[in-house]
Amino acid sequence: MTAASRAPQDARRGTDRAARLRAALDTKAAPYAFIAPFFLLFGVFGLFPLLYTAWVSLHDWSLIGGNEGFIGLENYRVLLGDAKFWNALLNTLGIFAIAVVPQLLAALLLADGLNRIVRGRGLFQIALIIPYVTSIAAMAIVFSTLFGTEYGMVNQVLGVFGIDPVNWRGGRLSSWAAIAVMVDWRWTGYNTLIYLAAMQAVPKDLYEAAALDGASALRRFWRITVPMMRPTILFTVIISTIGQMQLFTEPAVFDTGGAMAGGTQGQYQTVMMLVFQEAFRYGDYGYGSAVSWVLFLVIVVLGLINVLLTGRIKGAS
């Protein structure tokens, strides 16, 4: 090989290296570049507020006075002894329990029903998702009117059956029930569609084999459908937990007056309503931030319990 012929070869090797570098960049760097916008936005609108809220919660910080000094965990100490916080947490958990459990069960049954329907399934699917695409505030206003004491339609219907009017906002359980109805109205269809998608992914031959073995439809549902959908169910439970622990719009609109008090005695004041009341109605940013951070921790703990429980169930079966 002569020197004259080597030069172009070197040049080619050079372009090869550039191409390889490009290829490496393409596979390694490009994906990060693509997801960068999300993380940039998340950093600005998600992570930064989260950390800043933690910082604010360690201070005596009010709207009017601004930052009035570092007080360590004082806000958290007050919170632990604050009856209003525990009341709000109880309300949030209570509404969560009476809203989400029936909601997911109903969604599961509806999805199973839809899975059997062949004709007009699309129409039913659209009907189920419509509550989800309606404005949450508009929906809450309509329901608030329905649950009126004197002029509400629910009480009028109850009156037909000779039942005395219920003061829906007055009692703890009655207000929880009314709010749970709003929540379920909005979210049942959404979860149904998620379950339906998961159900359709269950291999048909499993059902056929079970049917051949003489398993009833009910047995096939509980023994095949539900176990096969476990990851999806876990997903909906976690998403519902996160969403419901932050429940705000429905009870806030349901409330009369805009003080975020959640009824005359805080019967349905949720934790998020308390955060809003403290921070934005009374201007106590420090305490409001502490409450919202504790809520965040509660959600994390509940999420871990979910994962742990599901792991247990998986291990047992």
Binding site: A19, R22, A23, L25, D26, A29, A30, A33, F34, A36, P37, L40, L41, V44
Partner: peptide, 24 residues
């Protein structure tokens, strides 16, 4: 072929630009 394949750098740049534009 290398010629029909979009080059990586502009691709990354576009993505970054899109994010920047949103912020702007």
């Amino acid at each position: 072929s290398p010629t029909t394949r979009p080059r990586p750098a502009p691709r990354a740049a576009t993505a970054a630009l899109a994010g920047g534009a949103l912020l702007l």
